[in-house]
Design a binder for these strands. Structure first.
Length: 444
DNA sequence: GATGGCCTAATTAGGACTTCCGGTGT
DNA sequence: CACACCGGAAGTCCTAATTAGGCCAT
């Protein structure tokens, strides 16, 4: 399960590849976790008001501590488990997410939301279709060695998305699923399971972040890439390559501190205003930021089977903000000395903070496109071009149907039942890379 | 049989790391 | 001494682009 803040989906259906859609005759059931219709719509409003993006574009979101209670905690823990349990193919993990990742930096909508797991069941009009499994099916060996053919030279491939961190959507809208390291780091920075615990912003205004626990981050990266030997040295080399490509800068004189040259418009900035004592200790050292890292023990990395226990075993102040119900930072006995940065400004009223109030679905962009092109689904949607608004309505309808169906059967919650379905191999989660804007000191 | 369209699989260039290394700085 | 950091070099893995060959309809 993914954490709400991990995933971003693009839903600019202007890019729908109808030829691809034609092959998706199987419409997985949409597993919606706590889909808040008004919220979704509100969230979608951000998209629909794209024309206002320019003025909002420099505004930043602050993730407030969640106060939704046990469900939130449970989901967060599950999310942490999935995040760190990347070895499990049946878990909707970051790895899986990366496999279906559809970054589209140039696309219109790049908004972090929660998740929707999709399976083929439960959608009216769904037709069996195997495409969603084809990613993992291997060709028969006989076919692999059947033919040998020559070929002519070809044109040069599309250039790298860097250094401007703009991804050509042609490349990424065709099933690409690569999650780049910088994207991974951005995801971590938006993931309250790891931010600010393992990685945190030190100066969100300038895109400066610190690898609080470099080993943990490297191991997470290694898990994601299926490189068990990954370490910070290796990951650091990849990070250093980003210097050349203009994706990252090194912050001089500060260890483990890097700077994004660009950031997404709608980046969610998790602050450690809800931080733990430990994190405050980091802050205490942030003045010089010299090497006080949490690297001392690999056990600090929650493994797939220990994350929950670890969370539970921590003293309350160790809990991640996402899963805690706590008093506002201002009420803490130990006031946070961290400087207030401009990006801490809550751009949305707290009462409408998406992340704070509840999960939003992370929807596979591709799934949504597929769904939107279903005749029966289209009947649910308002007229006009695809949008998050449409998606919200669609999801709302689907969720209601699911809920009604499940309640009528055994009284189980939608989520529980659908999670079950998701564990039967029908799942996906697509996200889009954030739309990035160049960072300038005055920009934020 | 010739032709054209479509689909599939083979091939391969290139991107994004990964690995290793030697070195410097703190 | 440990660790962070740097960058060169070579290698691996993966993806997208390209294209040949098979199949079918006309």
């Amino acid at each position: 399960m993914l954490q709400q803040s991990e995933l971003i989906f693009d839903f600019a259906s202007d890019h729908v590849n109808t030829s691809q859609l034609g092959s998706y005759s199987d419409y997985p059931a949409v597993i919606v976790e706590q889909v808040p219709h008004p919220h979704l719509l509100s969230y979608a409003g951000l998209t629909c008001e794209q024309t206002n993006a320019e003025e909002d574009h420099q505004q930043l979101l602050k993730v407030e501590p969640c106060e939704s209670g046990e469900e939130e905690t449970m989901e967060t823990l599950v999310a942490a488990d999935s995040l760190l349990n990347m070895d499990c193919p049946d878990t909707l993990s970051l790895e899986h997410y990366s496999q279906t990742f559809l970054p589209s930096l140039g696309d219109v909508i790049n908004t972090p939301v929660t998740q929707v797991t999709v399976s083929a069941e439960g959608i009216v009009g769904a037709v069996d279709q195997p495409q969603w499994h084809s990613l993992h099916t291997k060709k028969p060996a006989a076919q692999l060695q059947s033919k040998k053919r020559g070929r002519k030279p070809r044109h040069r491939r599309a250039e790298s998305p860097t250094p401007n961190i703009t991804v050509k959507k042609d490349k990424y809208n065709k099933g690409g699923n690569t999650l780049y390291l910088w994207q991974f780091l951005m995801e971590l920075l938006q993931d309250r399971q790891v931010c600010p615990r393992y990685i945190k912003w030190t100066n969100p205004n300038e895109g400066i972040f610190k690898l609080v626990n470099s080993k943990a981050v490297a191991r997470l990266w290694g898990k994601h890439k299926n490189k068990p030997d990954m370490n910070y040295e290796t990951m650091g080399r990849a990070l250093r390559y980003y210097y050349q490509r203009g994706i990252l800068n090194k912050v001089e004189g500060q260890r483990l501190v890097y700077q994004f040259t660009s950031l997404p418009k709608d980046m969610i900035y998790i602050t450690d205003g809800d931080g733990t004592k430990e994190e405050e200790d980091y802050d205490d050292n942030s003045g010089n930021d010299e090497g006080v890292s949490d690297d001392s023990d690999d056990s600090t990395i929650p493994s797939s089977d220990q994350s929950v226990d670890e969370e539970d075993s921590h003293p309350p102040q160790k809990k991640m903000s996402s899963s805690s119900v706590r008093a506002p930072a201002t009420q803490r006995t130990r006031p946070a000395p961290r400087p207030t940065v401009q990006r801490d400004t809550v751009l949305r009223p707290t009462s409408t903070s998406l992340i704070q109030e509840q999960h939003l679905p992370i929807v596979s962009a591709e799934m949504l496109r597929t769904l939107q092109n279903l005749p029966k689904v289209q009947s649910l949607q308002p007229a006009g071009h695809a949008s998050v608004f449409k998606t919200a309505q669609l999801l709302g309808s689907l969720c209601e149907r699911q809920a009604a169906a499940e309640v009528s059967v055994d009284g189980k919650g939608v989520r529980e039942t659908l999670d079950e379905k998701s564990h039967h191999g029908q799942k996906t989660s697509h996200v889009e890379a954030p739309q990035l804007v160049p960072l300038t000191n005055s920009d934020h």
